[in-house]
Every structure is written in C-alpha cells, then in structure tokens.
Nucleic acid binder design. Structure first.
Lengths: 141, 141
DNA sequence: CAGGATCCCGTGAGATACTG
DNA sequence: CAGTATCTCACGGGATCCTG
C-alpha cells in the first residue's frame, strides 16, 4: 500500500463497462478493466481477504485477529488494517483505557465485498482440482 | 489464553464448500480460505486478469496481446501466459511457419473464471466512488 | 495492548540484448 | 515473430526492538 495513488496514466476517468463483447475496440480493454485491477491490487495482497473474512463474524480486537490469522506479523496486520480503513472497508474504534483497546469492524461496504469474494471462492473451490491437475500435468513434461 | 477465548459463531463464513462448517475453530479460517487466497495469488498479479479479459473475445497472437495491453513487457507477457497455461486457463498453439505463429486461447476453465471476475468487476465499478471518497477523506486528516 | 521505527532480504517486474 | 537470458532495482513483507 503505497503512500501515493494507484492511477498511473492520465488523471482521466475510465469509462464504464466490463470488457468482453465482440466488436468492442480491443485497445480499450485495459482501460475498461482498470476498476477491476484497482480493486484486485487492493484485495489481492497477502492478507486483506483473510482479515475481511475474520471480521465478517463481527468486530475483533487487534491481537484477536493476529492470533486468528496464523503467520501474519503485527507489522503487516497494522499496515493492512490501515489500508482497509483508508478505503472505507473497515472501521477502527479506540477505547482509551489502560492498556488501550482497539476494535476493528467491517463497514457496510466491507460486508458487501464478501459477496463477490465468496463467488470467487466458490469458483476457486470448485475448480481447484482441475487447476492442480493441469499444473501437475504441465510440470511433468 | 487459547483459542477458547475467541467467540465462534461462524455464521458469515458458512458458504457452500467454503469456510466455516459450524463449530469450526476460528483458528482454521486461514486454512479454509486457502483456495481463495491461492486463486487470488494466481489472478491477483499485475497482468493475469487483463490477459484473460483480452482473450475472452477469442484467440489472439502474442504480439496482438502485447499491443492490446498497454505497458506490459514481453517478459511479463511470456511469464504470465506460461502461468495461465500451466494452470489450465489458457492453451498455447504453435504454428511452425517462418516466422512462427503462436495463438493463445482461453480454455473452458478460463472462460468460466470470467464470471466471478466480472462479479468482482461489477462490485469494483459500483463502489469505486465510495472507495475513492473514503480514501480522500482518510488522506486529508 | 496496540503500534511505530528500523533493518534486512527475496522476488516481482522493467529494460535491454540476443536467437531460432 | 515469439520468445530466452541477464542485469537491475523497488518494494512487499518478515524479524526485532522500542513506546504510550
């Protein structure tokens, strides 16, 4: 999650519409896919999806998340949570007790993300055998 | 402290074949999300989705793809195509003429991937304004 | 407890240059 | 045309130590 923006080219607004109808000028495909790739670079990292999944049951505290997701460093947890908060997917509520308590919770936007992600998850789960098989076959030769 | 102090309701994760059989310890969330993260690391890179989108109209030649996707290096195009081929999402057909001709085409598996990706794309497009707004707000303070 | 500040390393990916 | 082979660098991300 860089400090700066994602947009690379002109400050322009990409035109709507997803790619894929015959007759569509192919040169614009990258342009029309920009929102997708943008989101993918947001949730396509190593931890975002896991955090969203963990939070889908309700609010969780920092260390609670940390212990639920095995292998995540507190650095990456902090950074990823901050990124999710920045994009409005997660809220952060501090209770200034001693020791401090911080709760993270999915926003409505964050919850709505679960649907397409679950769709992808179902695809992944359903086609994993095929992929693994293709992969094994490819690697053998 | 153990996994026992974490409340397990798992209502949200109970997707068919996905995470969360009821009563599943939350510690296994990462485990049950593995297929998703696996796929995400496959298509979550910088170019895979774009290539799949370009190929969704039908077979394309190497340089055709290269010129359609602006900014991709031939190195990354080769590598990404090889990865997609390895996972059974794309076929590679060589016509040994001089100069050689190589066509890439989506497999049925590759085509089926477009549906969940498009779902994600619709989400991305619909919620992009909200995300950008949240981002701008977050960055101002 | 929650998170900042550093240090460090592997690898993702761009820029050429060469080949069948 | 469709790649392979290097060189290079930026950055994602882990480990560790420090603070309010």
């Amino acid at each position: 999650m860089g400090p700066s923006d994602i947009d690379v080219t002109a400050s322009g607004l990409a035109e709507p519409g997803l790619a894929g109808h015959p007759g569509l000028p192919t040169a614009d495909i990258a342009e029309s896919c920009r929102p997708v790739t943008e989101i993918l670079s947001r949730i396509g990292d190593k931890w975002s999806i896991l955090i969203v999944m963990v939070l889908s049951d309700g609010p969780r505290r920092f260390t609670q998340i940390k212990h639920t997701i095995d292998g995540i460093s507190q650095r990456m947890l902090t950074l990823t949570l901050k990124g999710l908060e920045r994009d409005g997917l997660v809220t952060r509520t501090v209770t200034p007790t001693i020791p401090p308590r911080v709760d993270y919770e999915l926003t409505a936007l964050g919850h709505s993300l679960r649907e397409p992600v679950n769709a992808l998850g179902r695809w992944a789960f359903a086609n994993r055998p095929a992929i693994l098989k293709a992969r094994a076959l490819f690697d053998r030769t």
